[in-house]
């Protein structure tokens, strides 16, 4: 089990690093999905099978698909030129130093903790469900309202006011003026 944890952790870190440094948005997203899957493995090892499932279903499944959907819609997945200057090695130095300092901070924090091995208690979905719908029942209601805000907001912001021609079709339209407009 321990070995699996370390392997999964390594995979997660590497794929996250690749995701945030990738030039191609689609590829980056795929790396991110790999990372989420390996984190899901870790959740399983830590005794949270329900969360492991949710991580795959909601995070990797729903949210990432939403991302892919938008990227496809905007057709920027293949755009490589945009960030070239930002991906020069020089750009990474300062943020990395900052992050390194934070890492040192975390390490010093961890040193101060009493060395302890986890008991690895498995908490089953049933327990989680009972807790969720008794103690945290109001929390569930509140998240419903929160999602409502998200829905109304996304509806209002996402709607197009006037017809906007898809970038891909713009060129076509220039040559064929009678080409039908396409809504996004």
């Amino acid at each position: 089990m321990n070995t699996i944890f370390y392997i999964a952790a390594l995979v997660a870190l590497v794929s996250t690093a690749l995701a945030i440094s990738g030039r191609n948005a689609i590829h980056a997203l795929l790396f991110l999905i790999v990372s989420l899957l390996s984190i899901s493995v870790i959740f399983f090892i830590l005794g949270a099978p329900f969360i492991a499932a949710l991580e795959v279903i909601v995070y990797a499944g729903a949210i990432m698909v939403l991302f892919i959907f938008v990227i496809m819609m905007l057709n920027v997945g293949l755009e490589k030129e945009m960030e070239n200057k930002w991906l020069r090695p020089g750009m990474w130095i300062l943020p990395s130093i900052l992050a390194f300092i934070l890492l040192i901070d975390f390490l010093s924090m961890l040193r101060s903790m009493n060395y302890r091995e986890i008991r690895g208690q498995i908490i089953l979905p049933k327990q989680v469900g009972i807790s969720l719908f008794t103690t945290y029942l109001l929390g569930v209601e509140i998240s419903a309202m929160l999602l409502l805000a998200g829905i109304v907001g996304a509806y209002h912001l996402g709607r197009q006011k006037k017809k906007v021609i898809h970038r891909f079709l713009e060129k076509i339209e220039e040559t064929h003026a009678e080409a039908p407009d396409t809504n996004l």
Binding site: I63, L66, F67, L146, L157, G158
Partner: peptide, 14 residues
């Protein structure tokens, strides 16, 4: 929360 945020965020990005 992440789901709600992403939906609003992506709408804004559009």
């Amino acid at each position: 929360v992440a789901a709600a945020e992403v939906s609003v965020g992506l709408a804004l990005i559009l």
